[in-house]
Amino acid sequence: MANSPQAKKRARQNERRFEINKARRSRIRTYLRKAEEAIASGDKDAAAAAVRAVQPELMRGVTKGVFHKNTAARKMSRLVARVKALG
């Protein structure tokens, strides 16, 4: 258990940050799931639109420190490749 005032404050900040990051991660995963479903449906236009919607969300996650830059790049690359393969 935190004893010093500084450690107590850090514990509070960590809890708040954890909740914010959890919500952000969940939001990004929802966008990713929608893109996956659009690709699975076989509709190239809908899939392309879904992937375009995912990209800024993923990059925002990178700037906020929720995802690593290479993880986001890998996810985008794979999604775009799968959309291209639909055509």
Score class of each variant (00 low, 15 high):
residue 14 N to D: 11
residue 2 A to W: 01
residue 26 S to C: 08
residue 76 M to A: 03
residue 25 R to F: 09
residue 54 V to H: 10
residue 67 F to G: 01
residue 64 K to V: 09
residue 6 Q to A: 15
residue 80 V to L: 01
residue 56 P to M: 05
residue 80 V to W: 03
residue 41 S to Q: 15
residue 1 M to T: 08
residue 14 N to G: 09
residue 81 A to V: 00
residue 66 V to S: 08
residue 45 D to Q: 13
residue 61 G to Y: 00
residue 75 K to V: 11
residue 9 K to F: 11
residue 61 G to V: 02
residue 62 V to W: 05
residue 38 A to G: 04
residue 55 Q to T: 10
residue 40 A to G: 09
residue 79 L to A: 12
residue 65 G to C: 02
residue 45 D to L: 12
residue 81 A to C: 00
residue 65 G to I: 06
residue 35 A to S: 11
residue 45 D to C: 04
residue 9 K to Y: 12
residue 55 Q to P: 01
residue 25 R to H: 09
residue 76 M to R: 05
residue 58 L to I: 06
residue 53 A to C: 03
residue 18 F to N: 12
residue 29 R to S: 05
residue 34 K to I: 10
residue 68 H to I: 01
residue 39 I to W: 04
residue 1 M to S: 06
residue 77 S to C: 02
residue 58 L to N: 01
residue 43 D to G: 05
residue 40 A to C: 09
residue 5 P to K: 12
residue 84 K to L: 07
residue 69 K to E: 10
residue 41 S to P: 12
residue 39 I to D: 03
residue 64 K to N: 15
residue 24 R to N: 14
residue 56 P to Q: 04
residue 68 H to P: 14
residue 54 V to R: 05
residue 71 T to C: 00
residue 14 N to S: 12
residue 74 R to W: 03
residue 9 K to I: 13
residue 50 A to F: 10
residue 57 E to M: 12
residue 34 K to C: 13
residue 22 K to Q: 11
residue 44 K to Y: 00
residue 74 R to A: 10
residue 59 M to E: 15
residue 11 A to K: 05
residue 2 A to M: 01
residue 23 A to N: 14
residue 4 S to F: 03
residue 50 A to Q: 07
residue 10 R to H: 08
residue 80 V to Q: 05
residue 10 R to G: 03
residue 26 S to D: 14
residue 44 K to L: 01
residue 4 S to Q: 04
residue 85 A to Y: 07
residue 7 A to M: 11
residue 81 A to M: 00
residue 57 E to P: 01
residue 26 S to P: 02
residue 41 S to A: 15
residue 76 M to W: 01
residue 53 A to H: 08
residue 80 V to T: 04
residue 6 Q to F: 09
residue 83 V to A: 10
residue 36 E to C: 02
residue 1 M to V: 08
residue 84 K to E: 13
residue 8 K to L: 12
residue 69 K to P: 00
residue 43 D to M: 04
residue 60 R to I: 07
residue 43 D to R: 00
residue 44 K to N: 03
residue 56 P to C: 06
residue 48 A to W: 02
